[in-house]
Design a protein around this nucleic acid. Sequence first.
DNA 1: CCCTTATTAAGAATATTTACTAATAAAAAT
DNA 2: ATTTTTATTAGTAAATATTCTTAATAAGGG
Lengths: 130, 130
Amino acid sequence: MLRNTIQKKLVYEAVVRLNDHPTAEEIYKEVKNRHTSVSRATVYRILNQLAEQQLILRIQVPDGADSFDHTNYPHYHLQCACCRRIFDIQKIAQEDIRVCVPDTKDYRITGYSILFKGICKQCNHKNTLE
Amino acid sequence: MLRNTIQKKLVYEAVVRLNDHPTAEEIYKEVKNRHTSVSRATVYRILNQLAEQQLILRIQVPDGADSFDHTNYPHYHLQCACCRRIFDIQKIAQEDIRVCVPDTKDYRITGYSILFKGICKQCNHKNTLE
DNA sequence: CCCTTATTAAGAATATTTACTAATAAAAAT
DNA sequence: ATTTTTATTAGTAAATATTCTTAATAAGGG
């Protein structure tokens, strides 16, 4: 059975506190600030465990380390091609991505991970010259 | 300007030949079979270049190396939770994932990458006990 | 309180990818 | 066709990201 440890509490709280889609390394540093002895491997293992339990969400990023997100409400993510950061974007509730693939008796679809690509608000406005 | 080299031809042909979503390492080995002197770094660089040109597609996989795919026709990908392999799944043409996020003047969406999770045909049938 | 065993710290190891450098070769210019 | 320019390459080192290993610790059931 899973045990509740100080380390798990610290990692989860760090993900919630850093609500800017932190990487494992950033979470490690944040945890380290409060509890110096925590090991990097422990943070990685706990992040995997929390993602497995769906208490947090793992975001695959094409160029670099995975990001993590506190899943408080359903939303998508956008990676800015310009500044490379990850942003939340709204979800239209009634639309579900699963309607985009046909039903079948062969395979079963249980979920998906999606990352939108584009230009964020700041970079978009910055590049508009006027 | 980009140059056409033997190495690029070999890498592209290997991706087309290995139509099973090979990793960079698998592509490297396939290329190596035909042209021993090709370097691993060259294969990685060319794969990045081809993906940039959208001649091939990069598939981000949560547990391991990226996969690549010869983009002959539009389709999605499914990773089997059981055997971990990547499979093609059909796309319903008239449905577009972009309708799932609202329009806005703030950010711009130029694309997305998606990976469905589930159970593939073989694993699904194998686990059905009868 | 004791026992079982999940969890941990620390660092080594692995996996994946990119950077570096001198040599090579594609294709533009002559 | 020859020269020139510079993108590309092989080979290796290095960087990055993550997991494994091991002995020690501690959570939580009995």
